[in-house]
Amino acid sequence: MTRFSLKRKKNKVIPGFGLSMGITISMLSLIVMIPLLSILLALSGTSFNQIIASVTDSQVVATYKVSLICSLIAAIVNCVFGVILAWILTRYQFPCRRILDGFIELPFALPTAVAGIALTTIYSDTGWIGGLFNKIGVEISYTTVGITIALIFIGIPFVVRSIQPVLEKLDSQYEEAAMMLGASRSKIFFKVVFPEILPALLTGFGLAFARGIGEYGSVVFIAGNIPYKTQITPLIIMSKLEQFDYGGATAIALVMIIFSFVILFSINILQSKVNKAAKG
């Protein structure tokens, strides 16, 4: 019996584990691992003290705050509106639903600089939307609010596209059963539907958050780039590169990689806990 089952495992319907694993490792190495490691190598010419001085400079630390806080707020906002958007797109049939669905991907497709310039113009004090807010004394373009809006823009597809397939597959029998057992509508959502989409929502949140920290193209236009106020970390890296300070730029890049890694890693841990709780 044991022998038989072992043999069965080896003979998968589609063979080629060796080949596909080889391709996976080569691709990951060439495109992700080696470039990332080269960042560490680029640091080898820089002394430890220089690295520490670069990454703890007060102006640089201020940019971490701007980048992290704006990305976090943007990711949270995206979670709320992402669930609503995904809900609308999967649960209801209405005219232009497919077109609306296609719009979700636009932030992926659009060159980020184009998005940045468009957002800056619309949200500036003389723009369509910025003008309205200007009347009540709220400035959007060239402030941290503007940065957050740009990050919401680029983060929305991550959240919607993570949740959508889960919502589509979710069997409506659960909701019907809950309703027949007398649960209120809000209770059905929060106790039946929400736990199902939570792991996917966490993935979307993590992706949007991590992407927001690294985003450059769309943000530099709408940020005022004033030190200690509206400078993002990627901008500091760019300006260090322009000053030929490759060591400093790389050191700060490494900090950003660590930020992103910690975010995605903690999301993964959180997710496995959520999954266990859901199964148990």
Binding site: T120, S141, Y142, V220, F221, N225, I226
Partner: peptide, 21 residues
């Protein structure tokens, strides 16, 4: 007194001339 430091001179011109900042 500077409210916007664009990344380049043309960016600054756009901010000032087009967006009236």
């Amino acid at each position: 007194n500077v409210t916007v430091l664009d990344t380049g001179a043309r960016g600054s011109t756009t901010t000032f001339v087009e967006n009236k900042k």
